[in-house]
Design a protein around this nucleic acid. Structure first.
Lengths: 191, 191
DNA sequence: TCATTTAATTGACCGTGGTCATTATTTGTT
DNA sequence: AACAAATAATGACCACGGTCAATTAAATGA
């Protein structure tokens, strides 16, 4: 995080973000065009790229805001006791992630950080989600023979797998819930 | 698959693919430009898009060829008996997948088919890989309480997770082998 | 208050993927 | 061989993300 001293800077950035949010709320994330953002914000194109590395950087922020609010709700909830309950609690997040193919691809691409110093909003959210989920693993019946960190990473893997197959016509006959459940049961439960 | 009757059509397509292969072999997949392809092939730009839906369609073919040859070798090998051996056998495929970030992203995006009728080369290869891996699951010690199809899909999920974390600076201290192994053991082995 | 340094903004310009009306070539028919 | 119908190839054009030297505005120091 830098330190944007000038008020003007904050104001411009806020205008850009607001414009981006407006566009997304009207036509979805996929419909966002940088030219449209700057024209609504009343600034030049170059200004956009003085504030965001690229289009994806704004996209990450906009998506991050949504994810964070979903995660806020998720953190407030008592730990679910069954895998079905876990799936149920994760559902809002999953549904947002598949709301647009574009969004899913973006989340996938940015869920890991390329460099240590640029863990973006999405990477943060994924990490946060992993933490929340890891906190659920004390539930009765959950296996103790595997490092909870590994278990949580595995859940992430299954989430992405589930959502990827959701977009795949060959496999879209099964609901997200039941597919994710069929991964989580053998992964988490002692047998 | 259509039926390109004219010889000319096949010849042009072959020229485009050959040009693409040459460029990739010189500068990697990321360096491929459609303009470069058509100029080497000696055709106009529009011709490219008469043969391939978009740039990614050519990319898929070029990557598919590589994946297929790796899979050919993989199919010829006797089923590994331990998870470590499985990881070892999968290594060539994994190494190709992470040879370029661009390649990994592309494989990720196309590993599932959007529509039933457009399972591209990459989707085919992923399916083929899943089949090969599923054939390994009769090994001694592999759990029998879960549908092998689900087990194989889970392995896919872990492969992608492993490769994604490989690109993530926060987690690149662990080797691909050991990370994938630490997922596969609890996933596949009875405990 | 003015001069100087520093930071933000601008918009013409570029690279590259993708489109489409027009033109050229092949194939089928008589 | 001559013509018509179908298929392939062309290249000027567009959309859109991204760059950068030049310009303008703000902060700093005297």
């Amino acid at each position: 995080m830098e330190k944007p001293i000038q008020k003007r800077t904050l104001a411009t950035r806020a205008k850009l973000i607001a414009a981006g949010e407006a566009i997304v709320s009207e036509g979805g994330f996929d419909a966002l065009r940088v030219e449209e953002v700057v024209s609504r914000a009343g600034v030049a194109k170059g200004t956009f790229f003085a504030h965001f590395r690229d289009k994806d950087a704004l996209m990450e922020r906009l998506i991050g805001v949504r994810l964070d609010s979903i995660l806020d709700a998720l953190s407030d909830i008592p730990a679910p006791k069954t895998t079905d309950a876990m799936v149920e609690e994760m559902l809002p997040m999953l549904q947002f992630m598949v709301s647009e193919r574009y969004v899913f691809d973006l989340i996938l691409r940015y869920s890991g950080a390329a460099l240590i110093d640029d863990i973006g909003p999405i990477g943060m959210c994924i990490g946060r989600h992993e933490m929340v989920v890891m906190g659920w693993l004390n539930a009765e019946g959950v296996r103790r023979d595997v490092d909870p960190k590994i278990l949580a990473e595995g859940i992430q893997a299954f989430v992405f797998q589930t959502l990827a197959l959701h977009f795949c016509a060959l496999h879209s006959d099964i609901s997200i819930q039941s597919r994710l459940g069929s991964y989580l049961k053998p992964w988490l439960l002692a047998h």
